[in-house]
Amino acid sequence: MQLAIHQLLPTYFEESSTLTSEIWGRELHFNSNEFIKIVAPSGSGKSSLINFMYGMRKDYTGSISYSGKNINQFTLEELARYRRDHISIVFQDLKLFADQTVQHNLEIKRQLNPYHPAEKIKEMAERLGVADRLSYKCGVCSYGEQQRIAIIRSLLQPFEILLLDEPFSHLDNDNSEKAMQLMLEESRARGATVIFADLERSEIFPFTRLYHL
């Protein structure tokens, strides 16, 4: 598996962005077992980059390839398989079903391609301190709790790439560390690449490469 970006630049960015960025307009290859940290201030395109790699947006020039195939040319079914089997994500805006319970939210993702048995949901929820929220609707959970739920959801499927878009923005240090620990364990178990986009350089993510956007 290899995820690669080739001369990537959002269509709404100036060409001059490529002069200062270590990502835009460059040729980059991300391999298995790599931990990639991307640091950038607000508005510099972190979420755009994560969404591009997840195949959610196409408003860019250049290309992104997964195992040599341009993800922009995936059919809708191929894209669904890509998301189900190969790539997982923690969205900045979490994207949970607010009217459904935490347990239901997690089961919806787990059953799609069960990497873990159903019992693992409770175990992970206990580790991240949200086990007592499993029967609550997501909409009534705090943002910090929702963030942990979104993290657990991302770990219930098989993946070769894990995309994290400011996953700890509403978590305290203790909870961030617990969540990071869980994500690292799960990623290592799969030999996956983790691409972590954040506002600042954080020491809790043991990155192997660092890029400034």
């Binding site: 669904a80 998301r83 919806i108 391609n113």
Partner: peptide
């Protein structure tokens, strides 16, 4: 919104 999120999560449109 729900259907769109299901597709985003990797559910096949078919």
């Amino acid at each position: 919104d729900n259907l769109s999120l299901l597709l985003t999560l990797g559910y096949s449109p078919r």
